[in-house]
Structures are given as structure tokens and as C-alpha cells.
Simulated scan of single mutants.
Amino acid sequence: MLRVTTITIILLSVQMLFAQKTIEETLEDTYRPVKKNLRIKVEDTLGNNGFLPVSIVKGKKEGPTFTIVAGVHGFEYPPIIATQQLMQEINIDSLNGTLVFIPIASRGSFYNRTPFKNPEDGVNLNGAFPGNKDGSITQRTASIITKHIIPVSDVFLDIHCGDAPEDLLPFICYYNNKSKPEQTQRAKELSETSGFQYVVSYPYTISHEEPAKYMFKQAVQDGKTALSIESGKLGNVQEEAVVLIKKGVYNMLVEMKMYGKRVEPTKAPIRLNDQVYIKSNKQGIFYSSYNAGDTVQKGAIVGHATDEFGVLIEEYKASKTGIILYMLATPPINKGDTVMCLSSFNPENE
């Protein structure tokens, strides 16, 4: 029995190693065009078993490798549906270069219908990077993406939306990493040609030794051109959000000379680069008459919370004048929750 168990463990280890190598092997194979769907096995010592779905689409001609990831949070449905449609719509014979799709990065979160954390191990994938190959299933998933997906990518796109409780203004964003000016400039160019009305940049303040935590921030830290789309909200599939995501991807592929023609002429984007976050100090029931996309003035009361008896316990004031990028839009509120994110443009942040 011991010998059989030992052999089984060895075989599983070999299969895991082989599965992870198939990503690089598929990309290194010179045969074109080809599409391969891979299930990269992921399991941990807690008894969690699963896989990371990876689809590799290699066009007729060589070119850049563009990676598209959805479903880092399992309740963010428009990015997942848009990615599903893109995988079916792309004509491989018209593609230059390679597309790498991860259609649902956190399958545990998706199939258990939970926002933010994977209930299998209680870990938020978009806080687990660079990951841990010996950790829980989510930490191992992050490690696979860091070690096997990010390194082969020329451009890395992380697609999100407002989660189950969040209202959100659609936007595309990148990190203003001044230590990597070439990659930052390319991310800015791709963002501005995507067709999204709002282009948001975030300051990049971590050192190379610090954990990136967020997935596309890990790609930035690793020297890649990386950006993120936010489109959709409130745990539903809005068709307009799906269309907007796809238009953004197609426009970026056109800009990279990888695929097709521009979906429609792009207008000059509205640029935002100065974000502040209003936080809750109390647990209670949240109320607001505002929506994502509204402009608020500094000092305005943008919401309040009551206790279970309807007694006012906290008011929330805008700390600056700005546009609401996203905000809490459901009644439950906990201490430390982000009530809303306000954004504006500050020339000094360029």
C-alpha cells in the first residue's frame, strides 16, 4: 500500500510538472495556425483540486503575445462573458501573433458564486501575487500565472468590473511606473486607443522586492506592458459592458497590428490620475443618492449609514471634487469598506 501511494504521488507530481510546461511548449512550437485549450492542474495539501483553463491561439503569422485574463473575481461576469465571446469570434487565419486567454482565473470563486475570495481557501486571488507554489490552491494559481503566463506575455490585460455590491463607471487603467518608461508609455497608448472614454492612471509606488498583490501590478513589476479594463457592475451581465470590453480588446489588437480593423473611430479620452478613497468607520446600512459617473464637490455629503434601528451612525463627505469611479451600491456596509473612489486629473501626477 505504501509503495502504491508513493508511486501515485510521483505520478501526480510528474503530471503537474508536465502540465505547467505545456504552456511554454505550446508557445515554442513553430506550427501555425493552431489553437490549444489547456487545463493546468492545480491542487493543494488542503484537499482542493482544480485547474487553470488556458487557451493559446497562434495566428498564421508570428507577432506579439497578448494575454487576456478574466474571472480573477468569480462574481465579475461581464469580463468572463466577453472573454468567452472573444475566444469564439477571433479568426485564427486573420491573427498575427499569439493570444493567451485565461477565461476564468478563480474557478472556485466563480462556481461557488462568491465575490472577492475563493471559498476553497478563503484567499482573494487579486491579492495573492506573486503567489506561492507550495501554498493553498489560490496561492498556487497566482504562482502559475506569475511563473508561466506573465513571462511569455508582451502585453498583459487584466479584465475586471464592479463586483456584486459595486456600481462602476467603465474605464481602462494602467500604472504610471516611471522606472519602466517604455512599458508605461505603451500601456498609455493602448489605453488611449481602446475606445474607453475614461483612461485612469495609478501611481506605482512599490519596490521590486515588495509583493505586487494585484495581478496586473505583478506584470508591471515584472517589466511587462500591462493594463486593466473595468466594465460592468453589481453581479449582473450587462450586454453594453460586454460590448465595451470586446471593443477595447479589438481596438488594442488593431493598434498592435495583430488583428482586423478598428471597430470605430476613437474619441479623445478623458484622463484621470488622482484617486482618493472614502472609507467606512462603522458597520451598518448604507444609503446614497449618487451613482458611479456623478461629479461631486469637495465637502458634499455623498452618503450615510444607519444602525439596524435606522439611527444615523455615520455620514460620508467628499474629500475632494471629482468623478465617482466606483462606489458601494448595496445596503450592507462594514468597517473599512470603500464607500466610493473619487478621481480627477492632476498635472503634477504626470
Score class of each variant (00 low, 15 high):
Ser194Arg: 05
Pro181Tyr: 08
Pro33Leu: 12
Met327Arg: 12
Ile7Glu: 06
Cys161Thr: 06
Gln84Asp: 10
Asp337Phe: 15
Glu76Trp: 06
Val220Thr: 14
Tyr250Asn: 13
Asp158Lys: 06
Leu157Tyr: 11
Gly135Ile: 01
Gly260Cys: 09
Leu52Asp: 01
Gly63Trp: 09
Ile278Ala: 06
Val276Lys: 15
Asn126His: 08
Asp44Lys: 07
Cys173Ala: 14
Val123Ile: 15
Arg3Leu: 07
Ile229Asn: 01
Gly59Tyr: 07
Thr8Lys: 14
Met327Ser: 05
Leu342Glu: 02
Gly232Asn: 13
Pro332Thr: 13
Gly127Glu: 13
Thr83Val: 04
Pro64Ala: 11
Glu76Gln: 04
Ile80Asp: 13
Arg3Gly: 00
Asn112Thr: 11
Asn281Gly: 12
Asn118Gly: 10
Gln283Leu: 05
Asn251Asp: 11
Ser55Ala: 00
Ser344Arg: 15
Thr338Met: 12
Ile229Val: 14
Leu95Cys: 09
Met256Tyr: 09
Phe75Pro: 00
Pro64Thr: 09
His208Thr: 07
Leu168Asn: 07
Gly74Glu: 08
Arg113Met: 00
Leu325Arg: 10
Lys60Ile: 05
Ser143Cys: 11
Lys35Thr: 05
Gln283Arg: 11
Gly299Leu: 07
Gly284Asn: 05
Phe75Gln: 13
Asp158Trp: 04
Asn349Asp: 06
Lys217Ile: 03
Asn37Leu: 02
Ser280Asp: 06
Gly71Tyr: 02
Ile10Phe: 12
Ser13Phe: 12
Pro79Tyr: 06
Phe309Ile: 06
Phe156Ile: 01
Gln185Lys: 15
Phe75Met: 11
Ala318Ile: 04
Tyr202Asp: 11
Ala187Ser: 14
Gly74Thr: 04
Gln20Met: 07
Glu120Cys: 11
Leu253Ser: 01
Val4Cys: 13
Thr5Ser: 15
Val339Glu: 04
Leu227His: 12
Gln238Ile: 12
Asn334Gln: 14
Thr8Asn: 15
Thr184Pro: 01
Ile324Glu: 02
Phe171Ala: 05
Tyr204Ile: 09
Asn132Ala: 08
Phe66Pro: 05
Ile92Met: 09
Gly97Arg: 13
Ile145Gln: 00
Met215Thr: 08
Val249Arg: 11
Thr30Ser: 06
Asp307Thr: 13
Leu86Cys: 03
Ile40Asp: 00
Tyr290Pro: 00
Pro170Asp: 09
Ser231Leu: 07
Ile324Tyr: 04
Gln15Asp: 03
Arg271Tyr: 11
His148Ile: 00
Leu157Ala: 04
Val242Arg: 14
Arg32Asn: 01
His73Val: 09
Lys233Ser: 04
Thr225Trp: 10
Lys317Thr: 00
Ala292His: 01
Lys188Asn: 03
